[in-house]
C-alpha cells in the first residue's frame, strides 16, 4: 500500500458508513447512495493532496458528497422509494424491544417524508456528529437557521411518531 493510500484510508476510510448513511438520506435511494459514496471517494482520492488541514478531513469529504449530490442529482429528482418498497432493516434487532423497533420504523417513515432542508442538517448532526456551527458552515447558512431547521425536523419526526403510535394503540 502506497503512502497516499495509507493516508487516504486513515483520514477518510473511517467515515465510509457515516457517508453512506448521509448519502442514503439525501437521496433516499440505495443505488444512488452507493454511487454517491463511490464518486465522492474517487474525487477525494484525486484531490487528497489539496487537503492541507487533516483535522478538516471529515467535513471535507461530507462537503464533497453534498456537492456531488447537487451536481448529479439535483436537476434530476431522485426516485424516492415508496414506503412499501423500503426494505431497510434495523441493524441489530436484538438490541431493541418490539416497541422500540416499531418506533424506529415509524421514525424512518417520517424521515422518508421529511423535506431535504430538514433531513440534511439532522443527519449531519446525528450521524455525522457535527456541531450546529459546523453544519452552518457546510450548508452556508447561519447557525440560528440550522437550529430552526433541526427544531422543525425533530418536531415533525416526533409528531409523526406520536400520531402513528396512537393509531397503532387503537388497533
Amino acid at each position: 500500500m502506497s503512502m497516499k493510500e495509507r493516508k487516504f484510508d486513515a483520514l477518510l476510510g473511517i467515515y465510509y458508513e457515516d457517508l453512506y448513511r448521509f448519502a442514503y438520506w439525501l437521496g433516499k435511494d440505495e443505488q444512488m447512495a452507493k454511487d454517491l459514496v463511490q464518486e465522492s471517494y474517487l474525487r477525494a482520492w484525486r484531490a487528497i493532496d489539496s487537503l492541507k488541514d487533516e483535522k478538516a478531513a471529515k467535513s471535507w469529504i461530507f462537503t464533497i458528497l453534498r456537492r456531488e449530490f447537487a451536481r448529479q442529482f439535483e436537476k434530476k429528482r431522485p426516485i424516492t422509494n415508496s414506503l412499501d418498497e423500503m426494505v431497510v432493516e434495523v441493524e441489530d434487532q436484538t438490541q431493541h424491544t418490539p416497541d422500540e423497533l416499531m418506533d424506529i420504523n415509524i421514525t424512518r417513515e417520517a424521515m422518508m417524508k421529511l423535506e431535504p432542508k430538514y433531513a440534511e442538517p439532522l443527519v449531519l448532526q446525528v450521524i455525522g456528529g457535527f456541531s450546529c456551527d459546523e453544519i452552518a458552515e457546510q450548508l452556508a447558512i447561519s447557525s440560528s437557521a440550522v437550529m430552526t431547521q433541526l427544531f422543525r425536523a425533530r418536531k415533525q419526526l416526533t409528531s409523526h411518531l406520536s400520531r402513528e403510535s396512537k393509531i397503532g394503540n387503537k388497533l
Binding site: Y20, Q38, E91, I104
Partner: peptide, 29 residues
C-alpha cells in the same frame, strides 16, 4: 430517549461490498 430512536432509525445497514468497488476504482484511477 427520543434521540436514541432517531439515531437507530437513521443507522440503516451499510453494504460493505461497496468498499471493494471504491478501492477497485481508486486502483483503476
Amino acid at each position: 430517549k427520543r434521540e436514541r430512536t432517531i439515531k437507530a432509525a437513521l443507522e440503516i445497514p451499510v453494504p460493505q461490498h461497496n468498499i471493494q468497488h471504491i478501492k477497485f476504482r481508486q486502483a483503476q484511477d
